[in-house]
Amino acid sequence: MDGILLVDKPSGITSNSLVQKVKKHLKSLTGSEVKVGHTGTLDFFASGLMVLTLGKATRLTEYFQGLDKEYIATGELGKITDTYDIQGQVIQEKECTITEEELEKIILSFEKTYPQMPPPFSSKRINGVRAYQLAKKGITPQLKPKVVTIYSIQILEINLPEFTIKVHCSSGTYIRSLIKEIGDEAGCGAYTKSLRRTRVGRFSVEDATPLDKLLAMELSEIEKLVISVHEGLYFFPEITLDEGFDRRFLHGQRFRVPFDIQGNVRVFSKDGRFLGVGFVREDRILQPVKVFL
C-alpha cells in the first residue's frame, strides 16, 4: 500500500500515537507491516488534518513538510501559560482593557513575513535535545527565531477576552507563538485555547477521515481513500521521458532533457508509469533523486 492518507486527528492524542494506531490497524488487515509516516506533527491538544505517507511514499515525506498550512485557532487574552496553550500552567495574568477595534488592527498587522520565536515547549532540537525536554526540566531553551510568513488572517469571531482566527501561513509557523504575540501587542498576553489544522497545501481536512472511523474500516475501504504517490506530489511539475530514457532514469543515470523546467519534477514513462522524483538543473540535466522501481 503506497500513497497518501488524510486523517482527521482528534484532540487529546499525540501525532506519534495516531501513526502507531494506523500502523497497527493496517497490520491487522494486511497481515504484514506497513510503513506509515507523518508529514508534520500536531500538538496533543490540537485537532485536524494530518497527511500520512504509506509504504514507498514515506521516502517522500520531506517534500510535504514544506507546504503552506491553514489553521483555525482560538486565543484568550489576559493569561500566558508556560506552553503558550491550554495545557500549560498559567505563569502570568493581566487585565486586558483593549477594544475589539484595537484588537482587530493588531491581529491583521501580523499579515507579514517576520522572525518568529518558537515556544519553549516545542519540538525544536537544541544540541540534539528537544526544546520541550529541556523546558520540562526547568531549563530555558536557547531558541533562535525563524522567519515565517503569515499570508492571511481572517477574524472569525471576537468575544473578549477570546478571539478566533483563521490563519494561512508558511511551514514552520507556530500558531501558539502567534497567539501570544497578538496578546503581547495587546499589552496583556494570550494563550491558545483551541487549535485545528484545516489545510496542508491543497489537502483539506474536509477530505480527511476521522481517526476513529478509519480504525473501524476494512482494507478495501481504506484503499479507496489512498491518494496515489504522483497525485500527492501535485506541487511538482511533471515530465515524460521517451523510451530508453526511462530505463536510464531508473538506473540512476543523469542526462539532458528537452524541457524548460528547473527544480524538482515528477517523472513518468511514455506509458504513464510514475518513475519517481528527479531534479532538473539549470543546464537541463535531469538528476534522479527518488526512484520507484
Rank of each mutant, 00 (worst) to 15 (best):
Q154T: 15
Q89M: 12
F64P: 02
Y63K: 12
A46R: 00
E104V: 15
D68P: 06
H38P: 05
V147E: 15
I139G: 08
F163I: 03
Y63Q: 04
Q65H: 10
G66H: 10
K124F: 10
E101W: 06
A73Q: 03
R59A: 10
G40T: 11
S123N: 14
K166W: 09
V167Q: 05
I150L: 12
K105S: 14
A46V: 04
E101G: 04
E157L: 12
E157I: 01
Q142Y: 00
I155N: 01
T83R: 03
Y132D: 12
E104Q: 15
G172M: 02
L77P: 07
F44P: 12
V148Q: 08
P120M: 13
L60N: 02
L67W: 11
I165E: 07
I106D: 12
T81H: 08
I86K: 13
R125P: 00
R125F: 15
T39C: 01
E162K: 15
L52Y: 08
G40V: 10
Q142H: 13
A135C: 08
K146A: 13
I150T: 13
L67Y: 06
L49E: 14
G88C: 06
S109P: 13
F121W: 12
S171I: 11
L77C: 04
I175P: 03
S122N: 09
E76M: 15
E104L: 07
G40P: 08
T149I: 08
N159Q: 14
T53W: 11
S109N: 09
G78C: 03
G66W: 00
M117W: 09
K136C: 11
S123P: 03
K69H: 04
Y71P: 02
Q92H: 14
Y71F: 03
L108E: 13
I126G: 08
K146Y: 06
I153Y: 06
M117G: 06
G88N: 02
L134Y: 05
T58V: 11
I158Q: 10
T164Q: 13
Q89C: 10
C169S: 04
I86T: 13
G78W: 00
K166E: 15
V51R: 01
Y132E: 13
Q142W: 00
I150Y: 10
I150H: 12
K124S: 12
P120R: 03
S109F: 06
E95V: 14
L156N: 13
E93P: 06
T113W: 05
F44Y: 15
T39D: 01
E102G: 13
T97P: 00
T74R: 14
V51I: 05
A46H: 07
L77V: 04
E101S: 14
